[in-house]
Design a protein around this nucleic acid. Structure first.
Lengths: 350, 350
DNA sequence: CTTTAGCACTCCTTTCCCCCGAGTGCTAAA
DNA sequence: TTTAGCACTCGGGGGAAAGGAGTGCTAAAG
């Protein structure tokens, strides 16, 4: 059977109406919405076809129709009018982004919050880690006899520091030599090698040098780890309780757990994809089978990307969410790009 | 009317039964639970008294009784058997705490997670900030012509660092002098004074010195701010959906919002109080009026305290939660105390 | 071949009612 | 003061019935 223009129009009307009202849509409404050019009986014939073709579903015999995931997919791909954010929305987004230039993770988390409040669904923001981070440089600063500060700068320009306590006293004079050792042997290499290289060097060093060296390496490893790990921030979880489809506690529970305790399971985006819409069963995660996700990415700099996603019912307002989300992502890209350097990055501990 | 021993026993039976079953408790059950020494009719007389005295409530005329907040309060204060954590529980807690010695905020957030999974209620953890933090020391490290690293150490022994980009080139040779300036004029003073002092010094400095100075001060201000701000971490929110009393969506929604988007509203503990139980209407926050909170504090060192709280229905199992929470808090205090110094603290960005 | 009016039919939802039973409150006796 | 006895209350469960939105089919019209 062929998907005529009229069938598509009907599908569009059904989808948009269902997005709005969360109730099955009847033939009479559709006929009216289409300007009354055809009767409801004609519509009913078409509806039967659309059900047969798998674009619509019927909760029960005498109910109206709702879009199936396949129907949503077609709607999103072809039928949906790509909305533009209004000037007012754009102004709101821009003003919200103003002066928010803080540490990286904080900006990212706040972006999530803003998106959630803009679209009225829960949102999540991922600070994607670079795949392989190495240390570019070490500095050691004397504090007192039993402690010093280690400063580690990574090749993605993050700088982290920590106060380290030593068991044996360390002479302030030894620190430059130690730093020199670190900078010659322990820069530009991956985590695993750090340990082995340390072991290789161990015999040549006395305990009073080895200990602070190993502490610094341990710290550097932690820095790299946290730099590589993606942190996920979520907000607006309570929004899902306000959606009629999640009045059913079991569904809400699954989603809620996902959004609070299993954030890492939330869908991400492979490189080069600016935005993606995942509808119901298209999601891999079980808890998301009854939900949809819109996720977009933005550039941060130094080959790094941020991710921002919105979780809602399959019935979610894709046009609006997609428009706002992509505008938002673009704004973030611009914002990070403007200071054509990296933004002043700060340590990122979740 | 007097609160006889038997009345108290009845109140205890009712409370514990209700905690367990979440259903109103009838006179027959109580008579049986008390060993059958008295008849249900006698119990009914007593129950009527207890209702009159405000310790119990009756959902409707022909239903059993449930404890009122006042009843819970008496139960918690007097009747509840202070539970000890079992050896097994203690072992679990201890093993969970092993090797978790990471950065401060991370430890604290994890503590919240552990508590939540131990008690099966949502939990929150607060990293309480010190009231007035000042910078103890500055270091400036050269990077290249247009950037340098600022390292700031606060008087609560946190060390933070950031890469700062300058607009005008900075000579590496100027940095020590600049650091010296900072260390003489900008240590040990509060945030507000930092700015004014900077202004006072401005006329004496050229732009190529003033800019990096002011950037460093700005960074120091941010460090102090984030050090003073309390960060709240929450987990296990989805647990509340599993409580029968929160099947009512509106109540669940309020609590959920509180636990996800208004964390700052969660009750804290004034100094010197090791643990507190807040029952239903005793809570100030509207969303918590139908819930109870058990919150405990532990010592971190340097006069700092951490807070850990559990949110549940008023019917929550106070004895178990309180026992586990206080054991947990004590364990944390011990853990932080063991390294009688501060644990290696790391930068804490939420 | 498509569209349309007409109409019987389906099935969900709401409402009402009735009954059941747990539990009470009261009375009167032990 | 305690207890047995008993009438009474009230919420909850289970149909049955009414209501209504919407369908599917048929037959006629375009």
């Amino acid at each position: 059977m062929e998907l005529t223009a009229r069938k598509k129009e009907i599908l569009k009307v059904v989808t948009e109406r269902y997005i709005d009202a969360a109730e099955p849509v009847g033939s009479k409404y559709i006929a009216q919405a289409m300007g009354g050019s055809v009767s409801s009986a004609t519509i009913r014939n078409e509806l039967a076809d659309l059900v047969e073709m798998g674009y619509l579903e019927q909760p029960h015999t005498s109910a109206g129709r709702i879009p199936s995931p396949k129907g949503y997919r077609l709607y999103v791909n072809e039928l949906m009018e790509r909305r533009q954010v209004s000037d007012q929305e754009a102004a709101e987004i821009n003003s919200a982004l103003q002066g928010k230039m803080q540490e990286l993770d904080s900006v990212i988390a706040q972006a999530g919050q803003m998106v959630s409040s803009i679209v009225n669904y829960p949102a999540y923001a991922v600070a994607a880690g670079k795949s392989s981070v190495t240390v570019r440089r070490y500095d050691l600063l004397p504090v007192d006899a039993s402690s010093f500060i280690a400063v580690v700068m990574t090749d993605d320009s993050r700088v982290k520091s920590q106060l380290l306590r030593t068991e044996l006293p360390v002479e302030a004079e030894q620190l430059p030599a130690l730093a020199n050792l670190l900078n010659t042997h322990f820069t530009g290499i991956h985590t695993e090698e750090l340990g082995s290289k340390l072991m290789a060097l161990a015999p040549q060093l006395g305990a009073e040098l080895f200990m602070p060296l190993s502490q610094t390496i341990e710290f550097a490893t932690a820095v790299i780890d946290s730099s590589q790990r993606s942190h996920v921030f979520t907000t607006g979880q309570s929004q899902i309780l306000r959606q009629p489809e999640f009045q059913d506690l079991t569904k809400a529970d699954g989603l809620m757990s996902l959004l609070t305790d299993q954030k890492a399971e939330l869908p991400v985006l492979d490189e080069n994809t600016p935005m993606k819409i995942l509808i119901g069963p298209e999601n891999v995660n079980e808890a998301l089978k009854d939900a949809s996700v819109v996720v977009a990415s933005y550039d941060i700099g130094d080959n790094m990307r941020g991710l921002i996603g919105v979780v809602g019912p399959t019935r979610m307002d894709y046009a609006t969410v997609a428009a706002r989300l992509s505008y938002f992502a673009e704004s973030l890209t611009k914002m990070f790009g403007k200071n054509h350097q990296l933004p002043p990055k700060e340590d990122d501990i979740p």
